[in-house]
């Protein structure tokens, strides 16, 4: 753990949860580290991945869970239901695993329209059928009006990974290449465009998608060369790479000129004062690969529809400070730091 993280403790006696503790930045890392990790501590959790992998008679099982509180519930390119299926499938897939089953828990606010609930359930069903990953168990709770915001969904996913394939966030090494599967920021901008106080016209659709087949293609292409895979959701590419830098004890150097950002997303971010590197994605992955495998994996990604616009965006470097650095399009250098506080509330 770096000095940055270790330095400040939560005020466990008098402090309260504020919105920055859910924003995917350092404050959230503190909250998870000092409350949840401290309480549930075990070796699998301590590995700090988005899923846990463990041996079960004959293979390695992968398990993950994720809560979805996106607002608004329906947005261009998806809704909370499809998101809850895709997001959890992706967390299983990032271990290089084949997702097998999902569970779904619903916390529903009194007064929520059945029609909307049906629409969400149908969307989950469609997403799960398309991905070939059934929802096999679930739970439903209803709370008083005002105690939730429409509906919150938690999904849990399990899958199986090949025994010899170990992808983990502590495996990035200096010299490794950083691959990104396509355009960044689409999901965050699509959701924001529907916000009541922001509403703007855009043709951008959320990129929400299940990535397990793209992952399978990458694993098939170069099983030995893959070190880490992550889907850069909340906090975007910046948050994901900062986490990996900490967990692997390395730094990154990125090249702004090759970062895939759609013109519409760049324009919306410009207008809102956001940096696309911090905006959420729900259908993209970052892969850290050994240098000799980079070309092969990139070609496999580009051959798949969900990786058509994949790019090599930078490399892993040795850096005791675990900085994510970027050469700007302007030719200067900058850090791509952790997100401070809250950039966008509730996008997933």
């Amino acid at each position: 753990m770096s000095s940055d993280i270790r330095r400040r403790k939560l005020d466990l006696k008098n402090g309260r949860v504020d919105l920055s503790h859910g924003a995917g930045g350092r404050a959230m890392a503190h909250l998870i580290g000092e409350i949840f990790h401290a309480a549930f501590d075990n070796p699998m959790l301590r590995a700090g991945n988005d899923q846990a992998a463990f041996e079960v008679g004959g293979g390695r099982m992968v398990m993950t869970t994720d809560g979805y509180v996106v607002s608004p519930l329906f947005f261009p390119g998806g809704d909370i239901g499809s998101l809850a299926v895709h997001g959890t499938i992706n967390d299983v897939a990032m271990a290089g695993a084949k997702p097998l089953y999902l569970s779904a828990g619903f916390i529903i606010e009194e007064g929520f329209a059945f029609a909307d609930l049906k629409r969400i359930a149908d969307s989950m069903a469609a997403a799960s059928r398309a991905a070939g990953v059934p929802i096999v168990t679930g739970d439903t709770k209803v709370v008083e009006r005002g105690k939730a915001d429409g509906v919150f969904i938690t999904t849990t996913g399990v899958g199986i990974a090949p025994r010899e394939l170990v992808l983990s966030s502590d495996r990035a090494q200096p010299g490794d290449k950083v691959l990104l599967s396509g355009f960044i920021g689409d999901h965050g901008v699509a959701v924001m465009s529907q916000r009541q106080n922001l509403a703007f016209e855009t043709s951008i659709q959320s990129d929400s998608a299940a990535l397990h087949e793209l992952v399978a293609a990458m694993v098939a292409a170069a099983p030995q060369g893959l070190r880490v895979m992550r889907d850069p959701t909340r906090g975007g590419v910046a948050a994901t790479l900062n986490e990996l830098a900490q967990q692997s004890g390395v730094g990154f150097r990125l090249d702004e000129d090759v970062m895939p950002v759609r013109a519409e997303v760049a324009a919306a971010c410009e207008l809102l004062g956001l940096d696309p590197l911090y905006v959420a994605n729900e259908g993209k992955l970052i892969a850290i690969v050994a240098p000799e495998a980079a070309e092969t994996v990139l070609a496999a990604m580009r051959a798949h529809p969900l990786g058509r616009d994949a790019a090599l965006i930078g490399e892993v470097i040795a850096d005791d400070h675990h900085f994510v650095q970027m050469t700007t399009s302007f030719g200067g250098g900058r850090i791509v730091d952790w997100l401070s506080g809250e950039q966008l509330p509730r996008i997933c």
Binding site: T327, T328, F330, G331, G332, G333, R334
Partner: peptide
Amino acid sequence: ISRYGLEDL
């Protein structure tokens, strides 16, 4: 100045 690394130029 900071965002684009002008100091380096």
